[in-house]
Amino acid sequence: MAVQTPTRTGTTEPQPTRQPPRNGPPWTEKWGGLFFVAPFGVLFAFFLLWPTFSGLWNSFFNTSLAGVQQEFLGLANWREMFGDPAVWDSLQNTLVFTAMSTPPLVIIALVMALLANRKGLLGWFLRFSYFAPFVMPATVVTLIWVWIYQPGFGLVNGLLTAGGSAEIDWLNTENRAMLAVVITTVWWTVGFNFLLYLAALQGIPDQVYEAAAIDGASGRQQLFRITLPLMSRTTGLIVVLQLVASLKIFDQIYLMTDGGPNYATRPIIQYIYENGFTSYRIGYASAISYMFFLVIVIVSIAQFRLFGGRKEAN
């Protein structure tokens, strides 16, 4: 791949792979643009288009990770998928996670942005605290939270027992494990939405507030009549981004509960992973991937529609 090495000063001519004449022959004018697109295009073709289509192809075969002879199966993988309750259970887990995590991730982010939109050291401290978890890798976050949820000597249960309540085995109790994962996720990723809100808040011109203050609007009125309405489009964006991001849940759950207890938290991506790699069933995993791909496309398109519609209305 041709990566242009910039020279030290950055002002002299970089060494181009080709030397297009100043007002070159017509073919450079006509085709020259392709050279700009080519590096990305090649990578795109290799690492996005190719796997997209080879995945579809594999879904009609009993392709195995072990590389044993593969046979054409027709729609057998797809039929198996529709009759496989684990597919639908894990898809449901993914949807439940999305439904549980999205509202707090949006609302808390907004509250944080309103709180942290201030100058000085306190502002710095608030922004640091709220956003800090986001810059840490999933593994670090889950190591910490598994330790926090630990029965017996973990922080949460330590506080619960100190407060006189009974201990909860968060990660090993079916209807608590998902909640525990959601709490961890909110702690970890709310910072990104917070930042988007903060940027939007800081984009509201001061004159708007000055004018409102002159008109005698109270702080509360400013909040409900000016700030929040102005945030509605940002909220739309954040909800869209968050829904799609939540649907792709894998890291935290795999690392915290491994999909347990009794598969109560296993997301669809983990089921794909387990089929494709742990059980060697590349073909079957490809079929499930495709089904999930369609779900995401449908959700995305529905959102673009909604989102686009709202924009026109404004």
């Binding site: 990770l65 072990a66 590389g67 387990e274 790699f277 742990t278 060697y280």
Partner: peptide
């Protein structure tokens, strides 16, 4: 467990 065996299989592949 599964993490080890999955990795081992993937590395052999």
């Amino acid at each position: 467990g599964p993490p080890f065996y999955t990795k081992l299989a993937m590395s052999a592949a």
